[in-house]
């Protein structure tokens, strides 16, 4: 029962067992007992005086107690700081959503009643609206990062046809690609490809990859999305002829807040949360993700999900 109690406490801290204060307390206790026992055996071998043995054992016990206490307290502080940070981000993000939704709805009302907004102010209003949406997206990303770190991602998986799902998203990106003067193509090598995923999360992931591909490809470039079957998996590849990722940055590309040097030159804004979230969400949904890239030539980002039979029911995760 006590073991279960410790596991549930560690779950509350959301740290691994070896960083979990209650578990470390028990480990340090065991080390203390073992240390005292070993000291008494060694001391008895080197001294016949019981008083000397007692002193040696007591000194060792005191030493181990101090070390153990320091270790447990330090990890306790770390775990508390991590929990407080997580709660803080959560509260602040939720609080930010209130004024952001007020601005969003009031702007919507204003833009719908064109009589109120003079025609020459419409562009300005459009900019305010875009920035409002950007802030909302940023807050949503922060909340999602927090949920991933605390292992609280909300998934609502259903069966979807990945081929038509991706095709629809690509079609939605045609105006953006045209605006960027990039050629956007969709190739489907196999259909239907049925997978079991949270469609809202996968939409976010796929749009993020499409957005990056177009954004980091210069005018006149090409972005190709390919959907194929690879053994028992469905695979989506997003290939661009863009700026690519420098070899030295490739190992860090899925890290939180990381942005490569050449990406910063093309686009100064951006949080470096996108690809971190892409990877975390794909993995949380049971898929895998990767990329191949050459600086100056372009990149291919891909993800795969196990294929499921469209006829059978899938047990929810």
């Amino acid at each position: 029962m006590n073991t279960f109690h410790i596991i549930s406490q560690c779950r509350k801290y959301n740290v691994s067992l070896w960083s979990c204060p209650p578990f470390l307390f028990i480990v340090m206790g065991a080390i203390n007992i073992a240390g005292m026992f070993t000291t008494s055996v060694v001391a008895q071998r080197f001294s016949d005086d019981p008083a000397m043995v007692i002193i040696a054992v007591s000194m060792m016990a005191a030493f181990l107690f101090v070390v153990g206490n320091t270790v447990v307290t330090s990890f306790q502080r770390l775990a508390d700081a991590s929990r407080i940070k997580s709660e803080f981000v959560n509260i602040v993000s939720h609080q930010l959503r209130s004024p952001l939704s007020v601005i969003k709805w009031q702007l919507e009302l204003m833009l719908d009643q064109t009589k109120v907004v003079p025609a020459d102010s419409m562009v300005t209003m459009g900019t305010i609206r875009l920035q409002n949406e950007r802030m909302i997206a940023l807050v949503n990303d922060l909340l999602e990062v927090n949920r991933i770190e605390d292992d609280r991602v909300i998934l609502r998986p259903t069966k979807i046809m990945l081929d038509s799902f991706v095709e629809q998203l690509v079609n939605g990106y045609k105006p953006f690609a045209e605006q960027a003067k990039d050629k956007l193509s969709f190739i489907c090598e196999a259909r239907p490809l049925v997978v079991f995923v949270d469609d809202a999360k996968l939409r976010w992931v796929t749009e993020n990859l499409l957005d990056n591909a177009i954004r980091y490809t210069k005018a006149g470039g090409e972005v190709t999305i390919k959907v194929l079957r690879a053994k028992n998996k469905a695979r989506v590849e997003v290939t661009d002829s863009g700026i690519g990722i420098p070899a030295t940055d490739q190992a860090m590309i899925f890290q939180k807040f990381f942005r490569s040097e050449n990406a910063l030159l093309v686009r100064a804004e951006g949080t470096g949360l996108g690809l971190y979230l892409v990877k975390s969400l794909i993995v949380a949904m049971g898929g895998s993700v990767g990329f191949a890239s050459m600086e100056g030539k372009g990149s291919t980002f891909w993800y795969t999900f196990p294929l499921v039979d469209s006829g059978t029911t899938v047990q929810k995760k």
Binding site: R97, S98, L100, S101, K104, W105, E108, L109, I136, V139, N140
Partner: peptide, 9 residues
């Protein structure tokens, strides 16, 4: 519905 994520429409 999450207010910040939904338009009035």
């Amino acid at each position: 519905l999450i207010k910040a994520n939904y338009a009035l429409k």
